[in-house]
Amino acid sequence: MPEPIRRIVAGLATLGLAIVVVVGLIAGEPSGSDRVGSLGNRIRCPVCQGEPISESSSETARAMMEIVAERVESGQSDGQIVDYFRDRYGDWVVLDPPFRGATLILWLLPVFALVGGIVVILGRVRGVHVEGNELEDPAP
């Protein structure tokens, strides 16, 4: 095959593969079709040493897992189930800190740090805004 055609075919093949992968990613399932298990991972076992109820073998944790399973069965949303436990044990029982109140800052700090870091790095780039900054090496 002549070189230009070969390149076009290779490019199209790569593009085709990329489309399959992207579609696969978009159409794919998010992990954790097991709702009971992933909810169990988010709720702390109240009588153990910093374990979620899904991983503890204590009776309390088992009973709580059963409550989670029942409520998932009866069609409650994740938020409702988590709130049920939060009402009984307080915010402490959730291993995933809520996106409000005292723990809102915990979620926002990484974002601020990321933005700050990017600003510092961009500030160190010489002439980052100059004429598009197209950099071409001499031929490899």
Binding site: D91, L95, L106
Partner: peptide
């Protein structure tokens, strides 16, 4: 007051 920060927080980020 006690707040819980566990696996789900660290893993999500």
């Amino acid at each position: 007051s006690q707040v819980g920060v566990g696996g789900p927080f660290f893993e999500r980020i």
